[in-house]
Write a protein that binds this DNA or RNA. Structure first.
Lengths: 198, 198
DNA sequence: ATGACCGAGTTGCTTTTTTAACCGAGTAAC
DNA sequence: GTTACTCGGTTAAAAAAGCAACTCGGTCAT
């Protein structure tokens, strides 16, 4: 599918991963604001300007795991076969996410993922910035739906559904249940919510 | 002694090591001329021009382990305390090398080191180029000794001694003996040879 | 309230690396 | 005997990274 990996591209990806991993690992260990970007740069063996070339702000060192999926909903809608309606396409896409326990669905019980979510939700500047990104995502999805107030409303509702579903899944996992155990409920919830939308 | 390690300097060193290690490892595995510099560059994850920026020729990918010690004899002579004569300084330096089983003394039985020596001595282009380097080394040592034919002669003799000693040590090891076992003989040979020089 | 410090982010300049293209010698095919 | 490889090595331009010094907002002590 996507194999045009030159030497340069591969190294860029690796640097980005190194920085992000160092950052998340330090954040989980000491908390978001007890870690300076200098610490992160040092641990990742890069200079500070390099770090900021990859991530525009300190927050993005955490949130890239969400922002990398920015516009995904819009893409799903745009790339669907023309004979399936948009909401159904999104519904199926979400179910597929549940199937492979994608962290963005909240249905993932790896300790690091759980800790990561707690980090985001318990750090105001992170939660705040994440909300901003959701607005961008919503606008992209609205454009994919078409124009006018109707499209915007549908976009808002779809993303709200996804957000609530993910949050509910994560909550159950945070309460100690296993992802495999929660899975059926997650599917049922998703089916219910998306069916309501249509 | 040497601690001015910036981020840049450290990465340069690491890149150099990566390239050299990839090269030697491939050479030992398949032989010197069954490995192309392209292979090496690929294995080391560097581009070809980068490789040649670190090592001027393919041979130097192997010989750097010797050339990194270029001028060492000259330095030993120049840096000796003025009350010890040059040959004695070199004698002591060689004994110190034996003590820590420095590969350049030939007294090292790590399988990789042994295989490495065999690689060098059984590849004509390598042995040839190594000889050239010894000439440079000899000239540097001669300059450290002073000027004129006397200095040149002494330099030639000292380096010949070191070469023969190292070769003898390596031969015993290649015959299957252990470095620890050979060590006393190596010291005796060195004492004998250097005493003859004085 | 002033001055010293710290942390996020930026700027200009230099060094390092990649890329793609090339040269020149050797060599195998036809 | 030309054509087409392969391999060692080079070149020029552009991307990426490092470095040092800076801004700017906040915090803390005097």
């Amino acid at each position: 599918m996507n194999e045009p990996t030159g030497l340069r591209a591969r190294k860029k990806q690796r640097t980005r991963d190194t920085i992000a991993d160092a950052a998340v690992s330090l954040f989980l260990e000491r908390g978001f604001d007890r870690v300076s970007v200098n610490d992160i740069a040092a641990t990742a063996d890069v200079s500070k300007p390099t770090l900021f070339r990859y991530f525009p702000t300190k927050e993005d060192l955490v949130l890239h795991r969400f922002t990398d999926h920015l516009g995904e909903a819009a893409r799903v809608v745009r790339d669907r076969r023309p004979d399936v309606d948009p909401v159904t396409a999104l519904h199926r896409h979400f179910l597929a996410g549940l199937e492979r326990y994608d962290p963005v669905t909240g249905l993932n019980d790896h300790p690091e993922v759980v800790a990561f979510h707690r980090l985001v939700f318990s750090t105001p500047s992170l939660a705040g910035r994440l909300a901003q990104y959701r607005i961008e995502d919503e606008e992209a999805l609205a454009d994919a739906f078409g124009e006018g107030i109707r499209a915007r409303l549908r976009a808002a509702q779809v993303l709200a559904v996804q957000r609530v579903l993910a949050r509910a899944n994560w909550q159950k996992i945070a309460d100690g249940r296993t992802a495999r155990d929660v899975h059926p409920e997650a599917v049922a919830d998703a089916d219910y919510a998306f069916d309501q939308l249509k």
